[in-house]
């Protein structure tokens, strides 16, 4: 397969089927690694922006919980676990005006994924209430046990049958390096044959690599640790979120603070 990267992400027909067989066929692995999806200057840029420079309250609202967070025109959100150091940035494409590079990279990955899933790319990039739309997420995990409990998504055991979709794949864009920036289990994925793989170590994953994996296979992150001088486990994910009609439970104080800050930014 020719080199697929964030500037060149259109697969030809043969490539599409090769990839699909690797991911969905019972004899396939259930995942595919696109080595070097991002050049170093882009991973450096993302890590620099999200891990070092950004002061989240300036650009993001506190995450109000999934229930009604995402709606057309909603802002970006962040979550910050004071004790674990976990940071999660929810960056809807329409809300993330401050970091266009992340948006461009996200779009290339969403497009690549839609080719694999055989679904129209435009289906899930603009928000329509009652439907799903991809909200790119950047996550920095510093320390923790049972960071992501073993589970699967969109599988046959979904309580709501509407959520079963065996074609769905998820993409993890790795932005830091195991055993250098963090240690622990890393991302553990259960392959189509039921065997577990510790992705970063067994696949030699480096920052800028993109792992596309079958969403309904069990996946987990059992433990991560990082020292003060390490950046932690940094990655981007692209979950399709449910879109609601309007803003839910975001507190008025939070919203006013955010509006005032953005007005100030404009005036400055």
């Amino acid at each position: 397969m020719k080199s697929i990267n964030h500037r060149n992400f259109c697969l030809n027909k043969k490539e599409v089927w090769d990839v699909r067989r690797k991911i969905y066929h019972s004899q396939g692995e259930g995942f595919l690694l696109f080595k070097g999806f991002l050049e170093k200057k882009f991973t450096d840029h993302l890590v620099n922006y999200w891990c070092r420079l950004l002061d989240p309250p300036q650009t993001h609202l506190l995450f109000p919980g999934k229930e009604h967070a995402f709606y057309p025109g909603c802002p970006c959100y962040y979550k910050h676990g004071r004790t674990t150091g976990l940071k999660v940035f929810y960056n809807p494409l329409w809300g993330n005006q401050h970091e266009v590079v992340s948006n461009e990279i996200a779009v290339s990955i969403i497009h690549l994924r839609s080719q694999i899933e055989g679904k129209a790319f435009t289906r899930e990039i603009s928000p329509r209430p009652g439907q799903r739309c991809v909200v790119p997420r950047l996550i920095i995990t510093r320390n923790g046990e049972n960071v992501l409990a073993p589970h699967s998504d969109y599988g046959l055991d979904e309580p709501n049958p509407r959520n079963i979709d065996l074609a769905r794949v998820q993409a993890t864009l790795f932005l830091s390096q195991i055993d250098k920036d963090y240690s622990g289990s890393g991302f553990v994925f259960t392959k189509n044959n039921g065997d577990k793989i510790h992705c970063e170590r067994e696949l030699g994953i480096e920052p800028g690599d993109l792992l596309i994996w079958r969403y309904n296979n069990v996946h987990e992150i059992s433990d991560i640790s990082s020292r003060e001088d390490q950046v932690g486990f940094v990655r981007m994910l692209f979950p399709p979120e449910e879109i609601s009609h309007k803003a839910g439970s975001i507190s008025i104080i939070e919203k006013t603070k955010y509006l005032l800050r953005s007005m100030k930014r404009k005036l400055v």
Binding site: R21, Y24, H25, S26
Partner: peptide, 21 residues
Amino acid sequence: MFKIIDLHLEEEAGVPSNREL
């Protein structure tokens, strides 16, 4: 069901869908 999905992939006919479900 998974065998039918495999056959769809082998014949380049489709990804898993409601068809099988």
